[in-house]
Simulated scan of single mutants.
Amino acid sequence: MHECFEPSKDVETGRDLVEDVIFSRVSKLKRLNFKGFYTAVLEENDDLVSVATLRVYNNSVAEMPLVATRFRHRLRGMCRVLVDELEKNLARLGVEKLVLPALPTTFDTWTINFGFSRMADEERAKLLQYTLLGFQGTIICQKLLR
Rank of each mutant, 00 (worst) to 15 (best):
H2Y: 07
H2R: 09
E3A: 15
E3W: 10
E3G: 13
C4P: 00
F5M: 03
F5P: 01
F5R: 06
F5N: 02
E6W: 08
E6T: 13
P7K: 12
K9F: 13
K9R: 14
D10K: 12
D10R: 13
D10T: 11
V11G: 05
E12M: 09
T13V: 07
G14Q: 03
D20G: 12
I22N: 06
S24F: 06
V26D: 00
V26S: 09
K28W: 03
K28H: 06
L29F: 11
L29E: 01
K30I: 05
K30S: 03
N33T: 12
K35D: 00
Y38L: 14
Y38A: 13
Y38V: 13
T39R: 13
E43A: 10
E44R: 14
N45W: 07
D46P: 00
V49K: 08
V49C: 02
V51L: 12
T53G: 02
T53N: 04
T53Y: 06
L54D: 01
R55D: 00
R55N: 02
V56F: 11
V56H: 11
V56D: 01
Y57M: 06
Y57R: 15
N58D: 03
N59H: 12
S60R: 15
S60F: 10
V61M: 03
V61Y: 09
A62G: 05
A62M: 05
E63F: 11
P65S: 09
L66R: 13
L66N: 02
R70V: 10
R70A: 09
F71M: 05
R74Y: 08
R76G: 03
G77R: 14
G77F: 11
M78D: 02
R80P: 00
V81I: 15
L82A: 07
V83W: 10
D84Y: 14
D84C: 08
D84I: 08
L86V: 15
L86W: 12
E87A: 09
E87M: 14
K88Q: 07
L90S: 05
R92L: 12
R92G: 01
L93C: 08
L93T: 09
L93N: 07
G94N: 06
G94T: 11
E96C: 05
K97N: 02
V99K: 14
P101M: 13
A102I: 09
L103R: 15
L103K: 15
L103E: 01
T105R: 14
T105A: 13
T105H: 08
T106H: 08
F107C: 11
F107Q: 13
T111D: 00
I112L: 06
N113K: 15
N113D: 03
N113V: 04
F114R: 06
G115M: 04
G115T: 10
F116M: 05
F116S: 05
S117M: 08
R118H: 08
M119A: 12
A120Y: 06
A120Q: 07
E122R: 14
R124S: 05
R124Q: 08
R124L: 07
K126G: 01
K126Y: 02
L128S: 11
Y130T: 05
Y130V: 05
L133E: 00
F135Q: 04
Q136L: 07
Q136E: 03
Q136C: 04
G137E: 00
G137P: 00
T138M: 04
Q142E: 03
K143F: 03
L144E: 01
L144H: 14
L145H: 11
L145S: 05
R146A: 04
